[in-house]
């Protein structure tokens, strides 16, 4: 005795298969160059399988970078300042509390829970003098296990005078905690940063477990960009 196949089942199967094929074709066409603008509007970053890395991928990228940085270091850092955060200790919950305390707006980068970017952050929120103004961005990276491993900032549209004041102050603060930079380039002077497009100053403090970088770059019409990065490079 065999069960009869419902009459509607073949039609459903054919319909489902046809829909799947058409959908696949549509997605394929949307990935062609001419359809790029449309796909950008339709596809949130958080849904893209490439943008949206797994925590393991984020950790893997960090591990590769950390290993390359440690290769040029010879000693551990005497301290690891990071704008008031604690590398390898601060948690996602701590960052949420910090953002709430300073009424800072933050978002996941590409839908990645472990990459966060906060915008228009008051200087006081990262322990800088209130007169330093807003930071355009403060970004964070957490390990898959939830601890903070990277803090970075960006300011643009600065005058050379503002940039010099900011990088000099930040560099002095870092040096007081970890010592002189292991590598520098350019000069933190108004004359040097005014020299022309891409005139830059950079100071890197590289250790076996930490790297702090302060930089300023003349971007022409966009003014001068000042950046800081505080990175844990512990294995």
């Amino acid at each position: 005795m065999s069960a009869a196949v419902p009459a509607y089942l073949p039609r459903v199967a054919v319909g489902t298969g046809t829909a799947a094929v058409l959908l696949t074709c549509l997605v394929g066409v949307l990935h062609l160059p001419f359809a790029a603008p449309l796909l950008r509007k339709l596809s949130p970053a958080s849904l893209c399988p490439i943008t949206h890395g797994t925590p393991a991928q984020i950790d893997r990228a960090h591990a590769i970078g950390g290993a390359a940085i440690r290769a040029s270091a010879t000693a551990s850092a005497p301290s690891r300042p990071a704008l008031g955060f604690e590398l390898d200790k601060t948690t996602r919950g701590d960052l949420d509390a910090w953002a709430a305390r300073y009424r800072v707006s933050c978002e996941k980068i590409g839908g990645n829970e472990n990459l966060r970017r906060c915008t228009d952050v008051p200087a006081s929120a990262v322990g800088e003098p209130p007169g330093a103004g807003l930071l355009e961005e403060v970004s964070f990276e957490l390990r898959g296990t939830g601890e903070l491993v990277n803090v970075e900032t960006m300011r643009r549209h600065l005058s050379p005078e503002q940039a010099v004041r900011i990088v000099a102050e930040r560099e002095e603060t870092i040096a007081s905690g970890v010592g002189a930079p292991s590598k520098t380039g350019g000069e933190a002077t108004v004359a040097h940063l005014s020299r022309g497009f891409l005139s830059s100053y950079v100071a890197e403090h590289t250790y076996l477990d930490y790297r702090a970088t302060v930089s300023a770059t003349n971007l022409g019409e966009t003014g001068v960009m000042a950046r800081e990065q505080y990175l844990s490079v512990r294995p």
Binding site: G53, A61, I109, L115, R116, N150, E152
Partner: peptide, 28 residues
């Protein structure tokens, strides 16, 4: 190129997202 990718790009919270395919297993 290797040094810039590893010590700068892969440690940047934004720019590293351009290289997720390269740290996937297997690479797509």
């Amino acid at each position: 190129v290797q040094s810039v990718v590893e010590t700068k790009i892969l440690t940047d919270a934004d720019l590293k997202t351009f290289f997720f395919a390269q740290v996937a297993t297997p690479i797509p």
